Simulated scan of single mutants.
Amino acid sequence: MLVRAYLRASTKEQDAGRAKADLVDFCQARALTIAATYEENESGASLHRPQLFRLLEDSHPGDVLLIEQVDRLSRLSEQDWDKLKALIKEKGVRVVALDLPTSHMMMKSDDAFTSRMFDAINSMLLDMLAAIARKDYDDRRRRQAQGIAKAKAEGRMKGRPEDAKRNEAITLMLRSGQSWNTIVQATGASRSTLSRLSQRMKATDLAHADNCIPDSGD
């Protein structure tokens, strides 16, 4: 039996290896050694997890997939969680999570009957915790969307600040008659930005022309 530690964080700004010391301490307390560590920064709500699948590819029947919490393994939808579970079962890997005490028994049970009992209990609890993790993910995304919608409605959410220097340069290029393709290639601006600046330029020119109309004296 080899212990393979899996460490995941959602974004590159987060430290995926944050819990490594806790996993090492957990194994040392049980006279076990972590054979390999797999770290990645990917969303738990996605099956795009190269390091997790590399871990499973490296594993042999009876190996342990060690995680800090069940949500490090899955915030997946029910369908994707079923796919991942099927692969874990096919590989014969035991999932052990620090926050799931019943799973700890999977590391020391050699009796076939007892092992099957713990496996059944552990599987049920894993399903439950995975469902809770997904609900937490969905709830946070819903609250975030509600917050954004409220901020927009109240006028508190503005777009990105305008790049005034770039837009001034684009306006000068438009005035000089350069093609939109040339401007896009030179500045990296989108065609929608060029359209907006072109309309602004025309409105400004029109307002300036109106102001320059001589007074008739009437």
Results as ranks from 00 to 15, higher is better:
M1C: 07
R4Y: 00
Y6L: 00
K12L: 11
Q14L: 04
Q14H: 07
Q14V: 05
Q14R: 08
A16V: 05
A19G: 02
K20Y: 13
V24I: 15
L32C: 10
T33A: 14
T33W: 02
I34S: 09
I34T: 10
E39F: 01
N41F: 00
N41K: 02
E42S: 11
G44I: 00
S46W: 07
L47R: 13
P50S: 02
Q51L: 04
R54F: 01
L55A: 02
L56Q: 11
L56C: 06
D58T: 03
S59Y: 03
P61Y: 07
P61Q: 08
V64I: 15
Q69A: 15
D71V: 01
D71Q: 04
R72F: 00
S74M: 03
L76V: 05
L76A: 09
S77C: 09
E78Q: 15
L87T: 13
L87N: 04
L87R: 15
V93G: 09
V95D: 11
V96R: 01
V96E: 07
L98H: 03
D99L: 02
H104I: 04
M105V: 10
M106T: 06
M106V: 06
K108Y: 06
D111I: 04
F113S: 10
T114D: 14
F118G: 01
D119M: 13
S123W: 04
S123A: 15
M124H: 07
L125M: 15
L126R: 12
M128R: 08
A130K: 03
Y137G: 03
Y137N: 13
D139V: 03
R143G: 00
R143L: 10
A149L: 12
K150A: 14
A153Q: 15
E154Y: 00
G155H: 07
R156H: 13
M157V: 05
D163S: 10
A164I: 15
R166P: 01
R166F: 00
N167Y: 07
N167Q: 12
I170K: 05
I170C: 07
T171M: 09
L172D: 10
M173T: 04
R175V: 04
G177W: 03
I183E: 11
A186H: 10
A189F: 02
A189E: 04
R191S: 04
R191P: 05
S192H: 04
L194N: 06
L197H: 03
S198M: 05
Q199M: 03
Q199I: 06
Q199F: 00
R200K: 14
R200Y: 01
M201K: 11
A203M: 05
T204M: 07
A207W: 00
D210A: 14
I213A: 02
S216R: 05
S216I: 10
G217H: 02
D218Q: 08
